[in-house]
Amino acid sequence: MLVLISLSFSTMVLFCLAMAKHREQVLQREISTLSVTFFRPLAWVLLAFTAYMSINMFGWSIGGAVLFGALMVASLLLILLLTYQATIIPHIAIVLSIFVSIYIMVD
């Protein structure tokens, strides 16, 4: 479940970075337009992967329900961080991505 929440968080961070107003909040420096164009497609790919992981872990029916729960928790966490501690979001996203990668490799 923690893996799903981590993946959902990274997905939501990518969606968030695809929006100019939030990008300014989160990132300290300007990034290239080319990188920006990749955020949204990457977010969709990661969302699809999160859905795949959820179904893989909990089956077709329960997996779908759990996915929405994980996305909800991740969104709430991200929104609160955006408001109070926006600059640490990239760090958290990186740490969680490493955690997910290790989990997938070990599993």
């Binding site: 479940m1 029916s61 329960i62 759990v66 729960g69 909800m72 928790v73």
Partner: peptide, 13 residues
Amino acid sequence: FAGPIARWLYFFS
């Protein structure tokens, strides 16, 4: 059907 963590998710929802 919810296990402990999914149940907490329901609770938070």
